[in-house]
Design a protein around this nucleic acid. Structure first.
Lengths: 203, 203
DNA sequence: CGCTTGACAACTTCGCCAAAGTTGTCCACT
DNA sequence: AGTGGACAACTTTGGCGAAGTTGTCAAGCG
């Protein structure tokens, strides 16, 4: 990779990291662009040159955080192709672990309701749809033959539960992941087991 | 029932109903006590004499709404003792149907975050715990021998999903209830099936 | 060049104050 | 038992200038 490109990526990452840190202390609405730049050790102008504006910066931030969250969960599913239940447990655990100290999630829950980062996450509706769809595709790819509709039912339920537990935890991420996979597991087992020739038929 | 007692209950119900109607139009924080009284056709003083104050009135309102919601769901479970899956479907459907046009739920979701009714629902944590516990007991009573911990796992998951769908619906109450019971069903079936002598052992 | 510094208009938020509205409580009245 | 008027304490609303922020220049520096 050429130096200029690498330098640019480093710059972006540094700025995004700075925002990440600042979001520990205050809500997005209370963090001026100048402070993000200062924390990253660059000038405000550089930030504007690189991202365009406050809104665009926030979008880039959300994209990076979301990508990390989803990638972690998807990796777990792919790594447990032969064991649906372990796949669910791993994905949920990965997500809940990350969510426990993730700024995007905390911003989504705690934040304002007025204008914060949450406003950029288009509304929870879009988040739910996006995550459900993306994980649904992973499920279809991991277990070919799985009915897309069944896949979406599972992932939507898992996503809703994950969000619910991320915003209002009952136990540790590990314990919660295990308990939830215990509940969803039998259903997924049923779907995967019925994958030999017959189309998915739940009584 | 003696007349004085009946009259008092009617008064309370009328006042509570008035609030119910007004909550369709505005958030709780924007509804003056005087308006509740006027809508109910009594004087403001009568309202204060009967309930004590704004806060107490709100609590009484929440209690009545919550009672209706829970009672409906519990009735469904009790009515499907022999069919766990139908029990879940019925309970979820009852709840989601009611939630679709229920002021308490809408107030909990939409409202302010600042001071509305939501503030009185002590925080979602208390709601979740209360509902989980109450339904858990119904499950234990309906299927004696069921491990209390398993019962709580099921009800907590069901409650979280119910709240999730109440605040952000994906389909009709009936369709959602059916889909969710399809997911939770196999697990509950497993629990109920393992109720003959052996204690609940999930692999 | 890529980045910084200083400058600046347009815009938003903040702190404060007075007007308007509400709450909770009395009491005289029916 | 319930009404209606009255009232002090308190909260919300609207206005307004000060302070802060955004987005964009252009000049300067290594």
């Amino acid at each position: 990779m050429s130096y200029p490109v690498a330098a640019k990526q480093l710059l972006r990452a540094t700025l995004l990291d700075a925002a990440h840190e600042l979001l520990d202390e205050r809500a997005w609405a209370k963090i001026p662009m100048g402070e993000v730049a200062r924390r990253a050790g660059v000038s405000r102008q550089t930030l504007y040159n690189e991202f365009g504006g406050r809104r665009e910066f926030a979008e880039a931030f959300i994209l990076r955080e979301a990508e990390g969250l989803m990638a972690g969960a998807e990796l777990q599913i792919a790594n447990h192709r032969g064991n649906p239940r372990a796949a669910i447990t791993g994905a949920l655990r990965s997500f809940l672990d990350a969510a426990a100290d993730n700024r995007l999630l905390q911003a989504m829950v705690r934040d304002d309701g007025d204008d914060g980062l949450l406003a950029l996450v288009t509304t929870r509706d879009a988040v739910l749809t996006f995550a459900t769809e993306r994980l649904g595709l992973v499920l279809e790819r991991t277990w070919p033959g799985l009915d897309p509709r069944d896949a979406r039912t599972v992932t939507e339920t898992a996503v809703r539960l994950a969000i619910s537990h991320a915003t209002l935890p009952t136990g540790t991420p590990a314990a919660t992941a295990k308990a939830l996979s215990g509940v969803i597991g039998p259903y997924l087992d049923e779907l995967v087991a019925g994958l030999h020739g017959a189309s998915s038929q739940a009584a």
